[in-house]
Design a binder for these strands. Sequence first.
DNA 1: CAATTTCTCTGACTAGAGTCAGCGAAATGA
DNA 2: TCATTTCGCTGACTCTAGTCAGAGAAATTG
Lengths: 297, 297
Amino acid sequence: MSVSDPVDVLRRFNRGYTQRVGALEESFLGLGMPLGTARLLYEIGVEPGTTRSLRARLGLDSGYLSRLLRRLEDDGLVALGPDPVDRRRRRVALTAAGRRTWDELERRSAERAHRLVDPLTERQRARLSAALAEADLLVRAATVELETVAPTAPLARRAVAAYLTEVGTRIGGAGTFDVEAELAADAGRLAPPHGAFVVATSAGAPVACGGVQALADGGAEIKRMWVDDAWRGAGLGSRLLRRLEELARELGHAVVHLDTNAALTEAIAMYERAGYRQVERYNDNPHATHFFAKDLT
Amino acid sequence: MSVSDPVDVLRRFNRGYTQRVGALEESFLGLGMPLGTARLLYEIGVEPGTTRSLRARLGLDSGYLSRLLRRLEDDGLVALGPDPVDRRRRRVALTAAGRRTWDELERRSAERAHRLVDPLTERQRARLSAALAEADLLVRAATVELETVAPTAPLARRAVAAYLTEVGTRIGGAGTFDVEAELAADAGRLAPPHGAFVVATSAGAPVACGGVQALADGGAEIKRMWVDDAWRGAGLGSRLLRRLEELARELGHAVVHLDTNAALTEAIAMYERAGYRQVERYNDNPHATHFFAKDLT
DNA sequence: CAATTTCTCTGACTAGAGTCAGCGAAATGA
DNA sequence: TCATTTCGCTGACTCTAGTCAGAGAAATTG
């Protein structure tokens, strides 16, 4: 067995790691709370939300979640209130007592981690840190899911809003966007029959997106390419790009265009790596400074 | 929270990893077999044994194990027979069908790992591989346990034998050792009241060792320093060295000596990093070419 | 040889984790 | 506005995982 076959390395790691460190999870126990309940409490503490968002994050059945929440509520650890946006849903947040329990969970978990790292020297800890951060990013990237969704879907709207915010700040305050107007424009052009929109999600949260639309004078155009800051460097951009090109091909196009701004240096580098060549300005987008095209062979 | 604090990175990794890949464990499912049963089958496949040894390895209740075994037997996957040594116990081994199921478990586990790695590019896979291998080594190293044992203990004998084999091959066939004679010599000098022997174990197997003895003309000497090939580069050597110096101090010595061979380059580098300075030959060891000493402040 | 201990197995439990169908309230679309 | 869809909640389940006490066979001890 080759030491460097990623599959073998992964399996070897997995076996060793879950045996030694997997016990970390069980640190949730010892608070007299079942694991599922503790996991939920922990997740609420990390970021409160609606029943819906929690379900997505933890992958739970709605009935099951409902029951778990009730138990936490009975114990006085969480407070439930109606969601003003959609009164069928409920918003969940920790109470003061819940926060104290959460802090205790945090403390115990950190203590366990600390004990594991303790026998290592400073240098080794740094090495472990770097290795785990790298592995974390790549594993996360590998498990991201690409979904084609309507540009009006909440997921898509959030992703595009994030895109606009970032581009706005990157290219300077001058050209900030009217988010609602932009979203409204997307609704038609980035949807079938002439377009498509793809969101990359991780544990239910959007981490990257991109769309294709048909250009008036033929060919397709890729728009709204965005990768969350924390997810850069894991090849998510090129994966998304490949998917969008595929969609453009399915829509019957033989060439894709895209425009971008000089400030978005990583994006430009990625387009070049992906085989895009720089072309003349093909639209009047005031925010665009660079224009690219690629033939879909 | 600093991104590079090892404790935080470890915890972040842990959360993401067990969520995404921890499911790997669940790959045991999908054979229509509950997790516990599959784990037991797997363990029997790795190494058959008595009910008793399996209970110890998996940490199961005897009643529970009994039930699980019966289920496996009913399914024709394992064969149970009385243990000739103690007829209250039973010996357990896989049947041919059990072996096939075991192989299938292996195959699926590998396939899952493969699927995880699949969306990544070649380069990313290599990065992931390297990162996991590094993390694996360090996590293993962090969970290694140092025990002071008698040099006659089976664990110690195995470690010293490995040491002698390695040194023998490294410094060339010329000076191979009489293993039994060397072990007999250690028995007296590397044990209390004038010496000590330390073995580093991981999951019960020796992975490094080292001993201290008193020199005739004063001072202590470190001997039998060995780190298993697969465990190099994780700082196990320096950790062991520190422990041995501590033991030398406790034995009342103010200075430690050690000798080594020019062929053992990593060891020499480690001694220098640890503050050892080269000194004149202080014994007539024919295998030694380099001599070191360090003051215990 | 008898008494005691050790060992596995059985039966009777409990709690956790999760699934599924269906209900009623709220939101959405025609 | 009315029909449809979405949403969360409830009740009724199932399956795992694991605990515990006690029975009976085998080994050990006095």
